[in-house]
Design a binder for these strands. Structure first.
Lengths: 161, 161
DNA sequence: ATCTGACAAGAATGCCAACTTTTGTCATTT
DNA sequence: AAATGACAAAAGTTGGCATTCTTGTCAGAT
């Protein structure tokens, strides 16, 4: 059985975390390497690296470890269950959460909750409302206004929380 | 000059906010309709609706108005400057910030800061490190491990903050 | 119809002090 | 080379209380 994986040094170099941090996160269970040598030395696999990088990025983004803890372990549980190739996945580590972008939709790493907002939705909503209550002023349907909205539709916000 | 735009009622119905909220947000400057009737009645344009929907979504996502204030006004300033059609844009309103997804990259609405993480980056980093420090254990480059990483690359976290 | 003003409940924020967590550094061990 | 242990500095959290912000509801004005 060859012991594959990244050493602490390598993981630190790749993810930008310090060895001390890796050690502490290991000890406190935030990110535990998926395997280790017979002598007890850490060996991180690539999924571990993803978690480490996410933690590192969250810290850089201003989150505290205690907040991060809520996300990362569930992210690690979340990743292996993904059917689609991870290559099409992006992680966005913001203030204090991790968003997983995958195949055109977004999930919140903590809950797996869907988070993306379909582009056409706000526009459709607007059109629907206008149909029901035709207003005295007529040009309401003309979205090509001074705000820069081009004719082919706009941004949209929506979703279900 | 025809007064185009959405009335308060319409804007409320489309975005899900209450009339009282629209009123308060108007009064406090969070989202001010871009025009109004001679009688002083609000007329929201589509860009305003985007902002309203974003605010609404942030509230639903658990953010407080006071946090939201930091984002929305800059979002409104941000939108009209976009050269690309807004149709290709998505907004993700998370905990307390707005991410603008546009043409494969992400911006934080407040600062316009780039936020997306290129897919190949973590993998490239890993390969680079391995090249420099060839390890005793050899299979480190084999990312097809039990964690579900498929052969065509993995997730990635990165970016510049 | 839509806005404004006024009252009140509920939520969020700021501040401060005690406490806990996180990280660096360095010495020691395996 | 890598992990562990110990000490200390820096940063983050908690709880309580006063203050401020948000929102609903309702009455009145345009």
């Amino acid at each position: 059985m060859t012991s594959t994986g990244f050493t602490s040094h390598q993981a630190a170099a790749i993810t930008g975390a310090s060895l001390r941090q890796l050690s502490y996160w290991r000890k406190t269970g935030l990110v535990v390497p998926s395997s280790q040598t017979k002598g007890g030395h850490a060996r991180y696999n690539f999924t571990d690296l993803i978690a480490l990088k996410a933690v590192r990025q969250l810290i850089v983004s201003g989150a505290s470890l205690q907040r991060i803890r809520q996300n990362i372990s569930s992210l690690l549980r979340f990743l292996p269950t993904l059917k689609q190739p991870l290559s099409e996945m992006s992680l966005v580590a913001t203030g204090d959460l991790v968003l997983v972008f995958h195949q055109g939709s977004a999930f919140e790493a903590l809950t797996g909750q869907q988070w993306i907002f379909e582009v056409a939705q706000l526009e459709r909503e607007a059109a629907k409302i206008i149909d029901k209550n035709p207003e005295p002023y007529q040009e309401v349907l003309n979205f090509d206004d001074e705000a820069g909205s081009s004719s082919n539709g706009l941004a949209q916000v929506g979703g279900w929380h």
